[in-house]
Simulated assay, not measured.
Amino acid sequence: MKHIYNILLIGIISCFFSCYTEEVKPTVITTSDYTVLVDYAVSAQDTIGNIPGTSNKGSVTFTIVSQSVPNALSIGETYGELIVQDASAFDPEINTEMNLVVSVSKNEITENTNISITIEEPCPDVNINDWLGKIAVVNNGTQTAAFGIENDCSILTLQGGDVAGLTCDVEAEISIQYEESDSNIGIILVERQAYDCVSGSNLELEADGEYDQDTGITTLNYTLYENNSINSTGTTTLFFDASSCTPVVNTAIWDGNLTVEEPGFFVVSGTGKSGCNTLEISGDILNWGCDSGLLPALEISFTPDSDGATTGTAVMERQNYNCNAGENLEIEATGTYNEDTSTIDFTYAFYIDGEEFFTGDIVITPN
């Protein structure tokens, strides 16, 4: 009986101390600063994020302490949802960012967290077709050739061309932002960026100017920097080279790294360089096993099914497959392309010394 009494007494004492320890354990709140990018086209009652906050003592309470745009947002007291109350406050012409301080509380213990909200501006929608494909670049009376590729948000990537009159020995690339306008004349901006036009130099270029959709001319008023100091300023014009073709296929989809697969047999890599309704693909796309330093560069031409179509035929005329020294290798292929799925499907034939050696099917997609 005495042993039972002792066991009960020890149990009661252990429970007392463990319960007491639990009661005096300090409340700890865990939270962190929070950053969110918000689309300008939000609506009232949209949730744009959840504030992080927990406690070692269970649920916490969220409260807005301050906000830089009054009454723009409310917060869910239990789960910390940031909820839009005034959608008009998210117009980027009025506010480009908002800042809030939110308290996270439990048992009279409070931690504050800082909330930074950036409002994403609408993407410009400008028809820049006049500057796609082969472009003439004129600087101080000298004309050079470049190639224009459209990216998202009306940004033109200009490949090549002597924009700053430097007699380039490297094909430089710059990005030009076309801004929306209520007329056919609008402004362009070139943010300061590397201009790798001359080997071994440290050049940067920035510019402003305008475009005219009626004349098809873009004017750049540029400043050229070398080693962070101004080197020169000037004006350059860009216009479509009418002697070239009209781009009707967005071959820029296959610019850069590509995957080439013959289903069930191999997957290899290639590199694409877009042209006007053409694509040059470099690489051992048939997994033949090329000599070191030798890679075929193959030309593909595209024809849409109809005006404005995003599908059509792709053709690789019979051409050299320059892969092994001393061997006479050729390839030809026909197939289809689909801009929406970013795929080129080919049925090909491979020739050695003029004789068909094997055939197959490959699929080309961007990485």
Results as ranks from 00 to 15, higher is better:
8 L>G: 11
306 S>I: 07
130 D>R: 05
34 Y>P: 01
264 G>S: 03
341 T>Q: 15
210 E>W: 05
6 N>W: 10
318 R>D: 04
144 T>M: 01
287 N>T: 04
367 N>I: 13
282 S>K: 03
268 V>K: 00
140 N>S: 03
118 T>L: 00
271 T>M: 08
256 G>D: 13
50 N>D: 06
122 P>E: 06
128 I>E: 02
324 N>S: 11
345 D>A: 12
54 T>A: 02
36 V>H: 00
228 N>A: 15
282 S>F: 12
240 F>G: 06
132 L>N: 02
189 L>Q: 01
192 R>E: 15
35 T>L: 06
136 A>I: 05
156 L>H: 07
28 V>F: 09
93 E>V: 09
354 G>R: 06
145 A>N: 08
128 I>V: 05
327 E>A: 09
327 E>R: 13
192 R>Q: 15
79 Y>R: 12
206 E>D: 15
315 V>R: 04
18 S>D: 06
243 S>L: 14
279 L>V: 06
318 R>M: 05
131 W>R: 00
84 V>E: 05
63 T>P: 14
36 V>A: 05
11 G>E: 09
193 Q>V: 00
270 G>F: 11
19 C>M: 03
209 G>K: 01
326 G>F: 11
109 I>H: 11
46 D>L: 00
212 D>N: 10
341 T>S: 12
337 Y>V: 03
5 Y>T: 14
276 C>L: 06
101 V>R: 06
2 K>L: 09
364 I>G: 11
102 V>E: 13
204 E>P: 05
256 G>W: 13
243 S>W: 04
115 I>Q: 00
103 S>D: 14
228 N>G: 04
232 S>K: 15
159 Q>N: 08
98 M>D: 05
178 Y>Q: 01
237 T>Y: 03
301 S>K: 04
350 F>N: 05
218 T>G: 05
184 N>V: 05
54 T>R: 00
309 A>M: 06
240 F>C: 10
199 S>N: 04
217 I>G: 11
343 T>I: 15
226 E>I: 10
340 D>C: 10
7 I>P: 09
217 I>W: 04
198 V>N: 02
102 V>L: 08
2 K>Y: 13
263 P>T: 04
263 P>D: 13
140 N>E: 12
223 T>Y: 13
194 A>G: 13
255 D>I: 03
301 S>Y: 07
191 E>W: 08
235 T>W: 10
183 S>Q: 10
265 F>M: 08
23 E>I: 07
231 N>P: 14
241 D>G: 04
218 T>A: 12
127 N>A: 08
307 D>M: 13
26 P>T: 14
120 E>W: 05
136 A>C: 04
70 P>V: 00
35 T>V: 12
308 G>V: 04
93 E>I: 07
302 F>L: 03
153 C>D: 12
260 V>D: 00
90 F>K: 02
212 D>G: 06
102 V>Q: 11
119 I>M: 02
217 I>R: 01
219 T>M: 14
286 L>A: 08
6 N>E: 07
144 T>C: 01
303 T>P: 00
3 H>T: 15
107 N>W: 11
366 P>F: 10
180 E>A: 11
182 D>L: 10
323 C>Y: 14
214 D>H: 10
325 A>T: 14
